[in-house]
Design a protein around this nucleic acid. Structure first.
Lengths: 201, 201
DNA sequence: CTCATTTTATACTAACTGGTATTTTATTTC
DNA sequence: GAAATAAAATACCAGTTAGTATAAAATGAG
């Protein structure tokens, strides 16, 4: 944003740290569900007034969009990194399975998947961002699978696009199940089974 | 409930047909989302007053529970019938795929899966019924798979329980994707792929 | 006709939602 | 010190939610 070391403006000094509020909002949306967290609740948790929040983020839509942006930077980027790491098919799939089944941050699910599942309840900005991330993820999965196919690691009758969608949805399902309290070992077993279609002829 | 041909009681005659209201509520919950349909909206659609609805169903929880009961009778029963039909593994899987991907009633998704996905927003009665149905479905899938295994149709390393869970979740995923506007051919392709693990050694 | 009975509709409650108008407070600049 | 500026908090708005108190209306029984 703006220079954090800029001269301290002119009016009454800020006491609200928008960054902290955003972190808190992201975490609240993430750990419960975007639809179950009101702006009122966020203000209360953050110990700020509503006008302060609205001055910083404009609207609930602006806040949830900013929270999703931050989530994409902080969390989703890692998943993209795994996909783009250039490792082989089996290694990458194993890393994705580990991420979905073991990463403690996914204990309470994935904010992006939660938002996507309740997309119709989001404001237009946030919804657009969800679609954007969805498309990026689909593209990343497709690029990964295309490379695997070029390397001869994978060659069943499926199109790359269908495979990419399938892969993404299976990971989403696993994370969602895990967040809903399903036995982690069982989740891993099911995800491994679902993704075994990529490694069997 | 009570005899529809019983003598016409004593007070002011009913004008509300609770059965019609229940159908309407079930359809509304089903075609949009239980969390997005208020009792106010149902009363308005049904052309009845709130006290009438509350006298018939007690509470929102009572109404949604009754709607789920009716859905189980009218729709889910068919899926159970397919599972218990005694057909072979491949035939039954094919029938399940057809149901999930082609049955026009699943165009807007499955009320049970929608309720299960938003379980924490339901009242206690409805939530308990969701859990009950979930357990029945799991049991039906398990019985089906056990028979298939006994017939020698299926024998990979998976436990019957894990297979049952997997099967149920894949069908849920397919129906949910279809309802969210995904290309039906693509959904079928993915579900077929997911279930191919049962028919390959 | 009168009374008990039952259903109806109107109108209300209290709590919550996202959002804002208004005023107060703290600061820099002059 | 006075003016300008910006952020703060309080208190509100209109709309929605689930749920209900109350009274009107429509019937059968006596």
């Amino acid at each position: 944003m703006s220079d954090p070391e800029a001269k301290p403006a002119r009016g009454r000094p800020k006491t609200m740290n928008a960054d902290n509020v955003l972190d808190l909002a992201m975490t609240a949306y993430w750990h419960s569900d975007p639809a179950d967290v009101s702006v009122n609740a966020i203000c209360q948790m953050a110990g700020i007034s509503k006008p302060s929040l609205y001055r910083a983020f404009g609207s609930e839509d602006g806040l949830s969009r900013a929270a999703l942006d931050r989530y994409a930077e902080q969390v989703l980027s890692e998943m993209f990194a795994v996909l783009q790491g250039g490792a082989g098919l089996r290694e990458t799939l194993a890393a994705l399975i580990d991420f979905a089944c073991d990463d403690p941050r996914m204990d309470t699910g994935c904010l992006f998947y939660k938002m996507r599942a309740g997309k119709h309840r989001l404001g237009p900005e946030t919804r657009a961002r969800v679609d954007e991330i969805d498309a990026s993820a689909q593209a990343a999965y497709a690029t990964f699978l295309k490379a695997a196919r070029a390397a001869g690691d994978w060659s069943n009758g499926l199109s790359v696009e269908a495979g990419a969608k399938y892969l993404g949805e299976q990971i989403s399902l696993a994370i969602t199940q895990r967040a809903s309290g399903e036995d982690p070992a069982r989740v891993r077993e099911m995800l491994t089974l679902a993704l075994s279609v990529f490694t069997r002829p």
